[in-house]
Design a protein around this nucleic acid. Structure first.
Length: 1115
RNA sequence: GCGGGUGUGGUGAAAUUGGUAGACACGCUAGACUUAGGAUCUAGUGCUUUGCGGCAUGGGGGUUCGAGUCCCUCCACCCGCACCA
């Protein structure tokens, strides 16, 4: 259907430019001859040009989407004319939330809607005439594709990052290292307190070993916060939460901790940062990535908590003989280590099992295991909640004490003790966890008595250790684990209240609202490592738990936010910058000397930083540290429409489906050994229980073997009898959207390979992507993840390059241009734009497709919606003029323009050239259909150089004139240069100038027009082919012609018209030979009447002559 | 808030290395041809001024013989901020 505003055409002349016919014919011809099929090997140099992977949404393409595709298509076609073997593929990022959301709403299966959307996208893309090799199409939701997504995930799962060699290595090699020398040479990235020798490692059970290995794997499990919506029973994405409630239904949401998969991208932080330097990306883009990675160097500083300050009500009767959370420095660390080791040698499967539910604050309290209390070692303890959990210890060696006596003793120390049996923990885990949760709820969070004693400390990260003497307070993130422990009774209510407030705030809000200073004093004090002065400890929302250590040292005289905070809460400010700090504003500049700072006084920032770190290390109160803002990438989604994980849980311990699970399970049992793990078909997309994804509802699929499986319980194996390794379940989360898109550029190289993700020969040949075009919205997501995947695959020897995209070009957005009509309040009468202020009106949106420029098609408007059928109009100059505004192009704003409509009306060639003509590729601009007329006129005018509309082709074999050759070669030079620098809009302008001039010269000569039409081929391939084959009678396709070489000799001018300025203002124009000498020019210029007039008789002070550019006389 | 981007006629823009600001188009005005015009062609079109000229690249300041371009500062708008893809 034509848009309303565009009227019908008149019948064409016999040889008029009939784009509809031309484009249809050549598309069919090209298709039939498979002209876009690309071989994997060739004598020609290769060139890999890639568009960013589209997600096929239900709305279809609008005119903004193809902008980058057209640019890359022109570049690809140009490179082909220049003799390259060009890989230019396209496919679909087909997994994703919108399809699943749509499924929930309409009941249609995501596979079906995705299929439909892809078909529509394909049709729209074909319409525009792209040169994609569709035989290489990939879809992330195709099992043949995600088989390899899962395979790569397993490579990451089976790898660790060697910090010495700066590369990923197979986890089997790590096991070999552990067998020989323990982990002494390889600090555990997941938990740097883990430390063991080879002997200790060998005594660990398989479960324990795997737990340790999990802390090293590049794909690993940990716990993370997600938005949980009780009412919807599901986990929500960030953008499904609006203003603290669910976007759907407006239900309350809360943060919930869940076990999730992560990619250890932080291990690659430094490499991702340094190898940016070699990429041809815009500085802006590199800067965004650098910023995201956020490398900062500084120091970690320990502030010990003050045991004496402040005075407390009621005094402290008997400080509990707890060794503190980090047992006292001098005495107990060795002991603790020893105990830990002893216990880890003899854990039970039950303990391991329970630990999975307790670790990492899952239940809202920090638990420690195998912790020393008095003379006992308890299984699990939450110091903040005074809760000890013990599991029946009959397997324990050494610590089997009379349980009752033990409990009594511990309770005397102020702890509550819960005991569970092995059986309870293993078979009734849910009940056990529930009980623990209940107990945690009842348990007052740590009374302060004695709790902040010992060697407890707060660790802060600072980039300015030189300002250590300016520390006036510490600030903890409100979620910091020590907050409960250190808060004094007087401050408890205030802290609780403040934490409730913070809970309601998103991370974004906490960072952005900087004017409003909020915070709360904990009542606790820390001790300054050098001055030993007490430093008050606050909590405030501007400190985020996820950054650094979740705690900062505040230096108000040197930091804006700290300054505002100190002023707001009347905290005295120590000035360490002398006169540079005025008292009104923090001095955050890094120039000048440090004052009032003990041994740092008088030093520069750089020197003081080094000296401070040195001193801190000497007194063991801190150390040098590099910090990254980058966090590990969450890789689990509680969704249906994504790649299933190739992971099974054997009694809750995750294994890759490619692992040999014997002796418990023979390899291949339950069909787990082969990839892909296919996404099972479901009829309901409802979330599973407890925030799990919909796959959790498929119990048959999830449970490969269950404990009460009659076949097994009839003849229990020895391990089953021992209560171990009973059930085998599948992972029910799916992978996020970026999984499939992190490596798709590799699959295009060898898309049908069934035995590898891509053959080494293919990846070696095509190598890096030479040109990648896409939007800046992918700056820190997709572009970072695919860089990491590439590096990991490189490290493991699967590919020969470690950066995926050599050159990156960002396209701007095409915005919508919305139209508005003005209804007089309380009536159905609309008043034209110019008169709208005469009466009170309401602005209503009008579909941009029924407006011609600014003028409303009144009849179309009446037909648009029933409520406007009888609308009346107050016109101006006989027209109804609409208001206009530039906004994002979206359905709800009625400003979407469909490329299909434009192509139908003007043809694909016009559409392609117009999109380029709009402006520079990387700049955002609004779409205006009106302007397309100019480009269309140009193509028609160009056509008329070759054909008379009434009589037919009129190309002659006459010899070209100098003027004709000049304009041709000027054009060839500019087109070549401009395509190479991706300036496509100026190419179009140059074509227009060229055609205008040739029309003026009445040129119809083959010698001029044939090279011109080849140069036009990347932009208007259909018209070029029609002219090339039918007009110029060539027998092969123009797509494989050779791009004509321009020759300087035709362009060179022998004289230049110089602008002549007097005192910088242009006053005349004079022509001189190209090689004129300055003396001659000077004489001629100074003798010129116009110049003399403007010199007003003054003598020239200076004569500036820039050869070929301009002349300036200074008087 | 942090990070990034963009500001030039009524509109999209050009000016590639600091050298005649507004190329090329849209729109508009007038005209030609025409049964007709949304085809085609011609002329005009930054603002201001009768003219000479003056003023103009978001605002202000600076460097320079010369600044849209370099520097400082302020303002406006757009994009991203970790589960949209």
């Amino acid at each position: 259907m034509l848009p309303f505003g565009i009227p019908k055409r008149y019948p064409l002349q016999p040889m008029e430019y009939n784009f509809t016919d031309i484009e249809k014919r050549w598309k069919a011809n090209w298709n039939e001859k498979e002209v876009y099929k690309v071989p994997n090997f060739s004598e020609k140099p290769k060139c890999y040009i890639l568009d960013m992977f589209p997600y096929p949404s239900g709305a279809g393409l609008h005119v903004g989407h193809p902008l980058g595709y057209i640019a890359s298509d022109i570049y690809a076609r140009y490179k082909r004319l220049k003799g390259f073997n060009v890989l230019h593929p396209m496919g679909f990022d087909a997994f994703g939330l919108p399809a699943e959301q749509y499924a929930l709403e309409t009941g249609q299966h995501p596979a079906d809607t995705t299929e439909k959307n892809i078909a529509r996208y394909r049709e729209q893309l074909d319409n525009i005439g792209f040169c994609y090799d569709w035989s290489r199409e990939v879809r992330t939701s195709d099992p043949k594709y995600y088989k390899w997504t899962q395979w790569i995930f397993l490579q990451l799962f089976h790898s660790w990052y060697d910090r010495e060699q700066h590369r990923a290595r197979p986890i089997t090699e790590l096991v070999e290292i552990f067998d020989i020398s323990g982990n002494t040479a390889h600090v555990c990235p997941g938990d740097d307190t883990i430390s063991f020798s080879a002997d200790e490692w060998k005594t660990y059970s398989e479960i324990q070993q795997r737990e340790v290995l999990m802390q090293y794997r590049l794909a690993y499990q940990d716990f993370a916060q997600v938005w949980w919506c009780e009412a919807l029973g599901t986990v929500l994405a960030n953008d499904e939460v609006v203003n603290g409630v669910s976007e759907r239904g407006g239900h309350p949401v809360e943060r919930k901790r869940m076990r999730q998969w992560f990619l250890r991208i932080t291990e690659y932080a430094d490499r991702l940062l340094t190898s940016l330097d070699n990429l041809e990306w815009s500085e802006a883009m590199k800067e965004m990535q650098r910023n995201w990675i956020g490398k900062s160097s500084g120091a970690e500083v320990k502030f010990y908590l003050s045991p004496t300050l402040p005075k407390r009500e009621g005094g402290v009767s008997q400080p509990r003989e707890v060794e503190g959370w980090q047992t006292a420095e001098n005495r107990s660390y060795g002991d603790l280590k020893q105990f830990k080791q002893e216990l880890t040698r003899n854990p039970t499967a039950t303990e391991e099992h329970l630990w999975n539910f307790l670790r990492r604050d899952q239940l809202g309290a920090k638990f420690r295991r195998q912790h020393i209390i008095g003379s006992f070692i308890v299984d699990f303890v939450s110091l903040s909640h005074n809760l000890i959990i013990e599991v029946d210890g009959e397997i324990h060696k050494g610590q089997v004490v009379e349980d009752n006596a033990r409990t009594e003793n511990l309770e005397e120390r102020g702890f509550n003790v819960m005991r569970f049996s092995n059986h309870e923990v293993l078979h009734d885990t849910e009940k056990v966890i529930k009980k623990i949760k209940q107990q945690l709820g009842l348990q007052p969070t740590s009374s302060p008595s004695g709790r902040s004693g010992g060697a407890a400390h707060i660790t802060v990260f600072t980039t300015r250790p030189d300002t250590i003497f300016g520390v006036d307070f510490l600030v903890l993130a409100p979620e910091h684990e020590l907050v409960d422990a250190i808060t004094t009774p007087e401050q408890k209510n205030a802290i609780d209240e403040y934490r409730t407030y913070v809970k309601s705030r998103s991370e974004r809000e906490r960072m952005s609202e900087v004017k409003q200073v909020t915070g709360c004093f904990t009542g606790a004090y820390a001790i300054h490592p050098f001055t030993h002065n007490p430093v008050p400890v606050w909590i405030a929302e501007y400190v985020l738990a996820g950054y650094g250590t979740g705690a900062i040292m505040a230096v108000p005289s040197g930091d804006e936010r700290d300054h505002a905070f100190a002023k707001h809460f009347n905290i005295p400010i120590t000035n360490i910058f002398g006169e540079q700090y005025t008292g009104n504003e923090a001095y955050s500049s890094k120039t000048g000397k440090i004052h009032n700072s003990g041994f740092l006084t008088g030093m520069s920032v750089a020197d003081a930083t080094e000296a401070a770190i040195g001193a801190l290390e000497k007194i063991e109160a801190g150390k040098r540290r590099t910090n990254y803002r980058l966090r590990d990438a969450g890789f689990s989604r509680q969704r249906y429409w994504g790649e299933p994980f190739p992971i099974v849980y054997v009694d809750d311990v995750p294994y890759g489906t490619d692992e040999d699970l014997s002796p418990t399970l023979s390899k291949g049992e339950g069909g787990v050994s082969s990839l892909p793990v296919e996404l099972p078909y479901v009829k309901s997309y409802k979330p599973g229980p407890e925030g799990q994804g919909p796959l959790a509802n498929l119990t048959d699929w999830v449970n490969i073997r269950t404990t009460d499986d009659s076949a097994h319980s009839a003849s229990p194996s020895p391990s089953e009898r021992a209560g171990e390794r009973l059930s085998i379940k599948r992972e029910t989360n799916t992978m996020p959207g970026y999984a499939g898109s992190s490596w798709y550029f590799l699959r295009y190289m060898d898309p049908h390979n069934d035995s590898e993700f891509a053959s080494k020969a293919a990846t070696d040949y095509w190598n890096q992507v030479d040109l990648y075009i896409g939007g800046t919205e992918h700056a820190v997501g997709h572009l970072l993840y695919s860089r990491m995947w590439t590096k990991a695959l490189f490290d493991l020897g699967h590919i020969g390059f470690d950066e995926p995209f050599r050159k990156l070009l960002n396209q701007g957005m095409i915005q919508g241009s919305s139209r508005f009509a003005y209804r007089i309040n309380g009536t159905n009468t609309f008043i034209s734009f110019g008169k709208r202020k005469e009466q009170p009106v309401t602005e209503v949106r009008v579909d941009v497709n029924i407006v011609d420029g600014q003028e409303l098609d009144i009849e179309a408007f009446r037909k648009w919606r029933p409520e406007y059928a009888n609308a009346e109009f107050i016109l101006e100059d006989g027209k109804y003029i609409c208001g206009a505004e530039v906004e994002k192009m979206s359905k709800s704003k009625y400003n979407v323009v469909n490329p299909d409509d434009i192509v139908k009306e003007y043809g694909a060639d016009t559409f392609r050239m117009y999109e380029m003509f709009l402006g520079p590729i990387d700049v955002s601009k609004p779409w205006d259909t009106k302007g397309i007329e100019g480009v269309h006129r140009f193509l028609k005018k160009c056509w008329r150089l070759f054909a008379d509309e009434k009589t037919g082709w009129l190309v002659t074999d006459e010899a070209a004139t100098e003027a004709e050759l000049r304009i041709l070669h000027k054009t060839l030079k500019k087109i070549g240069d401009d395509i190479e620098r991706f300036s496509f809009n100026t190419c179009v302008s140059q074509f227009m100038i060229c055609v205008n001039e040739l029309t003026g010269l009445n040129c119809h000569k083959r010698a001029i027009l044939e090279p011109l039409i080849i140069a036009l081929t990347p932009f208007a391939p259909h018209m070029a082919e029609e002219i090339w084959q039918n007009g110029l009678k060539n027998s092969s396709t123009v797509l494989d012609a050779a791009f004509p070489v321009y020759e300087d000799i035709f362009i060179a001018e022998n004289s230049v018209k110089y602008p002549v300025a007097v005192n910088g203002k242009t006053r005349a124009e004079m022509e001189f030979p190209i090689d004129a000498a300055q003396a001659d020019v000077e004489q001629a210029v100074l003798g010129d009447a116009a110049v003399q007039k403007w010199m007003e008789g003054k003598t020239p002070k200076k004569f500036i002559f820039v050869k070929g550019k301009m002349i300036n006389v200074v008087v």
